Simulated scan of single mutants.
Amino acid sequence: MKRSGPLFTLFAGLALGLVMLSLNATTGEAGAPPGNTPAASPATESPSVRPSPSRTAGGKSAYAGRTDDGTAAVSVSVRGDRAIAYYCDGRTKESWLKGPVGDDGSLRLSGAHGAELTGTLKGDRIRGTVETGDRPAAFTARKAVKPSGLYRATTEVRGARIDGGWIVLPDGRQVGVLERDGVPRAAPRIDPETGAVIVDGERLTARPVVPRPLPEG
């Protein structure tokens, strides 16, 4: 009976040791060592802002069409965030306009004598209104496939200043006005494949109109 006390104490100590080892092992599996805490996953970045699907940054495109009342033609040439437009009735009325294109495809162009063109570029067309001193005229200009589009020739012929503008519509029809020393008249036809045109017996070349990009800075 006197020997059972030490043996009991020995077995109790061994059992306690086994329990402690088991607890330590379990704790080691569940926790991470200090200083080695897994890094949090980086936050998902929001998608970058992209240009409107109406246009491609830096891209070039032309649009051509007629006013709703059929009395005039309108063409718009776009390059990135800049645009040049031409309105003419094919006889004596014309106006050149220019300005920015918004990220949402909005246009607000201005020209001489208070001329204004407002509209929206969406998909393959521009829908808007042009005002050149008369009542505003609504128009639709669809994306032009070369040789359709906007052309201009500016030069001097036999001492006279020549400035001509042409809109070649998608169906092949042409609408243009040519000024000779500031006096407008209906423009002669151009060869849309080459831009060649005869003015006062001289062969000239009308070239596609493309806006110039804004200077950097």
Rank of each mutant, 00 (worst) to 15 (best):
G159C: 11
P136H: 02
A153I: 06
D163A: 15
R180N: 05
A160D: 15
W166P: 02
W96Y: 12
G90V: 05
G80P: 05
R185V: 06
R161S: 13
F139K: 08
D104V: 00
A187D: 01
V177T: 09
I126V: 14
T92C: 00
G102W: 01
A83Q: 06
G99A: 07
R161W: 04
T129C: 02
S148Q: 06
G90L: 02
D163N: 14
T129E: 15
V101D: 01
G105K: 04
G111N: 09
S75L: 10
S77W: 04
S110F: 04
V101K: 03
A73E: 11
R135W: 06
R185L: 11
A83L: 08
L178A: 03
V130T: 06
R185N: 08
G182N: 10
A141G: 10
E156V: 15
K98G: 09
P170F: 09
E156D: 14
E156N: 14
V78N: 06
G172A: 03
G90W: 06
E116D: 13
R142A: 12
T120M: 12
H113C: 00
L107M: 05
R185M: 12
R108H: 13
V74C: 13
A186P: 12
T71V: 12
E131W: 01
I190H: 00
G70Q: 11
D171R: 03
G99Q: 03
V76Q: 10
G159Q: 11
S95E: 04
D103K: 08
L97I: 05
D171W: 05
R173K: 13
T140M: 01
D124L: 11
G70T: 07
E179R: 14
R158D: 15
S106N: 09
A115H: 06
I190F: 00
V76F: 07
V78Q: 13
D163F: 04
G80H: 03
V168K: 09
T118H: 05
D171Y: 05
Y86T: 00
R91P: 00
A85M: 08
R180F: 00
G133F: 06
E94S: 04
K146H: 12
A160R: 15
S106I: 05
V130G: 04
L97K: 01
D104P: 02
S75H: 03
A83N: 11
A137H: 15
F139Q: 07
E131L: 07
G128I: 00
D81N: 13
R161V: 10
A83R: 04
S95C: 11
V74I: 14
K98Y: 12
A73F: 09
I190V: 02
A137P: 01
D163I: 12
G133K: 10
G70W: 10
D103G: 15
S110N: 11
K143A: 14
D89I: 04
K93W: 10
V101N: 02
R125H: 13
T120K: 14
G70A: 09
V145N: 08
P184V: 07
R189I: 00
R152H: 14
G159V: 09
G159N: 09
S77I: 10
A72N: 07
T92D: 04
K93T: 15
Q174T: 08
A115S: 14
P136S: 09
S106D: 08
